[in-house]
Amino acid sequence: MAKSLLKRFSQSTVVSVANYKSIFARPRQHFQTQKQSSNLILAVKKENHLYPGSGQVQGFGLENFFYNTLTLNCVYNCDYCYLQGMYPSANQVVFVNSIDFLDAARSAISARTNKAQPLYLCISYDTDLLAFENVVPYCREWITFASEQTDLLLEIRTKSASYRSISDLPVTDRVILAWTLSPEIVASKYERGAPPVHRRLESAASAAKKGWPVRLCFDPVITVPDWKSHYQKLIETTFDAIPCRSVRDATVGVFRMNAHYLDRIRKQRQNSDILYSRYEKEGENVSYSKEQRPEITSYIRDLLTRHLPPERIEVWT
């Protein structure tokens, strides 16, 4: 992997680094400044090739829920993204020792606590792997891996329109391709660098047509002015593009973020209204108020139940 990346970027200046953290974790880095011209860091991850799933993400009742971090950071630059507060650097880290991640997944499959369920593994959790597939073909590698495992269910979540880069692979029901969808007004204002929603839908529709299990993620729901009609239109457009029988399931979640991350982001940038809304703090997280959250999710769920049975809709409140 490292060799092929060095060959691909043969015109770039290469700086050798003993440990990726010595550049990634430097103090006083400015996330948004680096985002304007981020560097690619090739690294080896020596430990933690698998993490238990967090309560911030829907697990669809699957108990053996894990995620991994094959890369750090994301090619997109969404205003609401918690990575701005979680990582000290916007540089894109690619861990090149994929074999260790695959071994960890194999071990976890064997050691999973509930043997009646597969290991549910999100590989595009703190990043967008499919958007980066033309640089690092990890989706391809992991889909191939999943095809060979009997007790593994992968989720690859994306905002990209890059289905084409894996469209030649045989379909497997062990991989869910999940598209995050937002109304155009939200996407154009807050999801910098990500493709417009109609292109994501085209990509998702192509995958669904070929038979891939497709998940639709309405997450984070953001209450822009007139949000109800924007989300209604989005859901109508979505199911016009993708027949409901081709959709495996859908997830709904309101905007939420670790309060500490939000504080860190606000120290570096004060130019997005989404970072300055009147959120309520509950535990370690900030989100819309206790009263607003069920109203938002109920509304979206009701729209979705016109197309999907309730058991195929997972809601985070």
Binding site: A18, I23, R26, S37, N39
Partner: peptide, 8 residues
Amino acid sequence: RSYYPDML
């Protein structure tokens, strides 16, 4: 020790 300025 090594140090790395940002080359932005």
